[in-house]
């Protein structure tokens, strides 16, 4: 073997190295698992990093109750097959107040995801949480360290990040403080797709185009994944049309815009991704809040 490692091989080795460092140095790590394609890659990397042992940490899904049904199905199966414990956390306050993406807008993300995540980490006492965020996703992510230090109140201080040299990660922290760790920081969307193809990783079928019930709402195209619930919240049944659509990212079904597409295989999806003229998170409402600094602000408040 004299040829240089390919970029995918280097990225994989780096991610595995990062995961092992966390397991060696953190007291109680956890992997955040959102069932999206990045989570699928993360889970696969974790299996590789610790083989033949199962990954020595649980999966945590901070649930909003508004995910696509396909995602819930894959979530259970993936955890079982990896031999890992699956923890599901739903913010009880958000549930009680009936927070939903239609009536509550940004509050939905804040209550279910930001608050839910903080509560879950505090409840179980996790001191290191793996996330599948990548630096190519968004401007403030591009600046974030691999080991991203958070205060006891989960805050992120972007102007005062710890220097991070070579592949030496400083995992030290005081009690109550925690670290968010991003092993696939240096991957791009294309790398993730290609890795899924090369490694034959199972992902939620919603990434592939298929005829699906859709409706238009506030200028976006959405999938009517759970019509009864939609009616409860919207007060009416939206006009449902069957279109061939797929999703570039998966969040809560009312927050994640569908794109019309015929790409039904992985190669076609990658092809479409490469030829597209809009960025991956464009379908997500979250980044557009608070002007250009939406994500940075959310992260300072404790969002992943």
């Amino acid at each position: 073997m004299t040829a240089s490692l390919t970029h995918i091989q280097r990225l994989e080795a780096e991610a595995i190295h990062i995961m092992r460092e966390v397991v060696a140095e953190a007291e109680k790590p956890v992997m955040l698992y959102s069932v999206g394609k990045d989570s699928a890659v993360m889970l696969h990397l974790a299996k590789k990093a610790f083989y033949p042992s199962p990954p020595p940490f649980p999966l945590l899904h901070v649930d909003t109750t508004w995910k696509f049904r396909d995602m819930y199905e894959l979530r259970e199966r993936s955890a079982r097959e990896a031999g890992m414990e699956l923890l599901v956390y739903q913010n009880p306050e958000a549930a009680e107040r009936g927070i939903n993406p239609f009536d509550h807008g940004p509050l939905h993300t804040d209550m279910w995801k930001t608050e839910g995540l903080k509560q879950a980490l505090d409840k179980y006492g996790f001191d290191a949480a793996f996330g599948g965020a990548r630096r190519d996703e968004e401007k403030s992510r591009a600046k974030e360290r691999v080991f991203s230090f958070r205060t006891a109140s989960h805050g992120w201080d972007p102007k005062n990040q710890r220097p991070e040299l070579w592949n030496l990660y400083n995992a030290r922290k005081k009690k109550g403080e925690s670290i968010r760790v991003f092993p696939i920081s240096n991957w791009t969307e294309l790398d993730v797709w290609q890795y899924i193809q090369l490694e034959n990783i199972e992902i939620v079928p919603l990434y592939f185009a298929a005829p699906r019930p859709t409706f238009e709402w506030e200028g976006g195209l959405f999938m009517a994944d759970d019509i009864d619930r939609l009616e409860d919240v919207l007060g009416e049944v939206p006009e449902i049309t069957t279109r061939s659509v797929r999703f570039r990212t998966l969040g809560c079904f009312p927050l994640t815009g569908a794109v019309e597409s015929e790409a039904a295989t992985l190669s076609e999806v990658i092809q479409e991704t490469l030829l597209t003229t809009t960025s991956e998170r464009q379908g997500r409402v979250i980044d557009k809040d608070a002007g250009g600094a939406g994500m940075e602000k959310k992260k300072q408040e404790g969002y992943f």
């Binding site: 190519d136 403030s140 600094a293 940075e296 602000k297």
Partner: peptide, 20 residues
């Protein structure tokens, strides 16, 4: 590339940004 709010306000680069 200047992704942080403070950077955009001040027109300078404070921290390393990684691009691909």
């Amino acid at each position: 590339v200047d992704g942080l709010a403070a950077e955009r306000e001040q027109g300078i680069t404070i921290d390393v940004a990684y691009r691909f």
